[in-house]
Amino acid sequence: MNRFDGKTVIVTGGGGGIGGALCRGFAAEGASVAVLDRDEDAARVVADALSAGGAEALAVTCDITERASVDAAVERTTAAFGPVDVLVNNAGWDLFVPFLETVPEDWSRLIDINLIGPLNMHHAVLPGMVERGSGRVVNISSDAARVGSSGEAVYAACKAGIIAFSKTLAREHSRHGVTFNVVCPGPTDTALLASVTEAAANPEKLREAFRRAIPIGRLGEPDDLAGAVLFFASDAAAFVTGQVVSVSGGLTMAG
C-alpha cells in the first residue's frame, strides 16, 4: 500500500521544477494531485504526464495572490477528488537585487506571492482540515530565511515569516490533528536559479561558486526536495509539527 492512497494533495506552483517533482512524488505514492499554478500550460503539462502514468491529477489555474482564485481552485479540487488532506505551499518568486536598489513595487510583489499567497491558501484549506480533525501542511520556505542571503532581503523576510507562521499554526491547531512543517531548499537547479545565473557577467562561474560552497558538491535537484516533503505529509510524521528542515547539501547547518 502506498503512503498516500486515497489522499487528496494540493501543490501550489506545481507547474515548476520543484513543484512538478513534488507532484510526481505524491502521485507515485497513490495521491490524487491538484497541480495549482498561475501558468495554465505549465500546470497542464505536469498533470497530463501524471495522468498518462495512471495517476489521478488535475491542472488548476490559480493565482495565489487573489483570494477568489484560491477559493475557486480549492472548490474545483474538492469537487474532483474530495476534501484536501495535504497542502503544500510551494509557489514563490524571487528578485536578486540589493535592498537599496529595490522599490516599493518590488516589495509588494514579493510579499504578495511569498507571504500573502500562502496565507490565502491556508485560510481556504485549513477550516476543512480542522472540521475533519486531520491534515498535513508543508510549507516551502528557503535557507535565506534561516541564515540570510545577500540580494534577497525582502524574499528572505517573507520566507522567515512563513517559518514563524507555520510554528504558530502548529501551536494553534495541534489539538485539531493538523500538522505544519517547513522545508527550506538551498540552491536548487531550477528555472529561477537559471534566470539569476544567466543575468550574471559569468553565469558558469557563478554556478561553480554555488557548487563549491555546498559540501555535498553539487547543486540541489528538484527531486531532492521530495523526500523531506513527503515525509512531513505522511502518517510517519504524525508526531512531528512546527519543525524546519534544510535540504541544501549541507550548505547551511542551522540548529
Rank of each mutant, 00 (worst) to 15 (best):
8 T>V: 09
203 P>R: 14
98 P>A: 08
163 I>W: 11
139 N>H: 02
243 Q>H: 06
120 N>A: 04
222 P>C: 06
35 V>S: 14
65 T>Q: 07
199 A>W: 14
81 F>K: 08
103 V>C: 06
219 L>I: 06
32 S>D: 06
100 L>T: 14
10 I>F: 06
204 E>F: 11
205 K>P: 12
220 G>R: 15
77 T>D: 08
176 H>W: 15
100 L>A: 11
124 A>T: 05
101 E>I: 12
47 A>R: 02
129 M>Y: 00
131 E>P: 05
83 P>R: 13
148 G>H: 03
181 N>T: 04
110 L>M: 10
174 S>Q: 09
26 F>C: 11
4 F>R: 01
56 E>N: 12
191 A>V: 14
44 R>I: 12
12 T>C: 05
120 N>F: 06
35 V>Q: 15
110 L>E: 13
211 R>N: 11
132 R>V: 12
149 S>K: 10
170 A>M: 00
47 A>T: 01
238 A>Y: 03
31 A>D: 07
247 V>W: 10
116 I>M: 08
83 P>V: 10
49 A>N: 09
209 A>N: 13
69 S>M: 00
78 T>E: 15
236 A>N: 10
174 S>Y: 14
238 A>G: 07
114 N>T: 04
14 G>V: 04
68 A>R: 04
224 D>E: 13
78 T>D: 00
133 G>H: 05
160 A>D: 13
43 A>L: 00
205 K>G: 15
158 C>K: 06
12 T>I: 01
10 I>Y: 07
97 V>A: 15
21 A>Y: 02
247 V>H: 09
129 M>A: 01
74 V>P: 07
15 G>P: 13
120 N>G: 05
247 V>R: 05
116 I>E: 06
143 D>W: 02
152 E>F: 13
196 V>Q: 15
162 I>F: 12
198 E>I: 09
113 I>T: 10
220 G>Q: 15
62 C>F: 04
154 V>S: 07
38 R>Q: 10
134 S>F: 12
44 R>F: 12
234 S>R: 03
182 V>E: 07
183 V>F: 09
185 P>A: 11
246 S>F: 06
122 H>T: 08
32 S>K: 00
243 Q>L: 06
242 G>V: 00
189 D>I: 09
101 E>R: 14
112 D>N: 12
183 V>Y: 03
143 D>A: 04
111 I>D: 00
169 L>F: 14
134 S>R: 11
69 S>D: 12
24 R>H: 14
247 V>K: 10
155 Y>E: 01
151 G>K: 05
